[in-house]
Write a protein that binds this DNA or RNA. Structure first.
Lengths: 144, 144
DNA sequence: TAATATGTAACAGTAACTGTTACTGATACT
DNA sequence: AGTATCAGTAACAGTTACTGTTACATATTA
């Protein structure tokens, strides 16, 4: 139970790093060092962020990764949508209930309604937090 | 990613069933039929609900399961807390980051703050939904 | 052409949940 | 007393998903 994947957190980490180091050149190996994970893991998450239009990357000797949008326009909802691709739902619904039972036949529908409401609230909260605000609030002291 | 466990949903199902069938006798086998799952699965979840003080059960020939509180006082937050015991956190944080990196060293703390805020919002939403309201809104037609 | 770094595929290891069986223990009815 | 019933619990297999890792293909720059 609970969300066992750390991809959302690592994705936020990557984006914050890119914003923090925007004057320098960021590679997947550098990100891997900051996150303390394998470069392939970073690239696996990068693929989703690229697909979602949040980052861009170039190939070759001077390859570099950078934000595809301004940091104050990338919200945690964008990151959530990008990393949670398949499993967008906050809670899993047991849909294989007994269709002949007055309760069982209606539970999936009922839960759908309730979870949608909760999730919308959560997403509104996420949409109010930007990468820029996170970096500025927590990782500033070195930049002048 | 996302929450792969259906225990929260099944727990809500169980509680709604108990409220709906409060004039009858509910057994774990009856619940298993409504949920369409093995009775042991039901009992596994019942254990958590009992521990949290949401249901009571008796043993013996006429054993029965019933709500330990009035249905309009049991909220989905109670159910969430009961079933998510260990994994209360909505998102997993990658805590094994690089302590020598200005970004990596601060990410876990930053994410803690953000996630706590989001989770509080979600929990407030859950605390506004009761078992009684769910049953009344969706599973009423048979009761007069 | 060589070096560098991303893109991608494949595989093992691990963790968690569900499904299932089987047994124990408590209670009520005969 | 004795038996039937049903909750409580433990144990195990099967499945799924994520992380960690290696290896290779691909694109770009020097």
């Amino acid at each position: 139970m609970g969300n066992r994947s750390q991809q959302f957190s690592v994705a936020v980490h990557i984006l914050c790093f890119l914003e923090f180091n925007k004057k320098g050149r960021t590679t997947s190996e550098l990100l891997a060092m900051s996150v303390n994970a394998n470069p392939a893991v970073i690239r696996r998450i990068m693929r989703k962020l690229t697909k979602a239009g949040l980052i861009t990357s170039t190939l070759g000797t001077n390859a570099a990764i950078s934000l595809a949008q301004k940091a104050d326009q990338i919200t945690l909802l964008d990151v959530y949508r990008a990393t949670m691709e398949d499993n967008q739902e906050i809670f899993m619904i047991h849909r294989d209930t007994n269709p002949t039972c007055p309760v069982g036949s209606k539970m999936p529908y009922l839960l759908d309604g309730v979870y949608t409401k909760v999730q919308t609230t959560m997403e509104n909260e996420l949409s109010g937090i930007t990468i820029d605000s996170m970096v500025k609030s927590g990782i500033v002291e070195i930049e002048s």
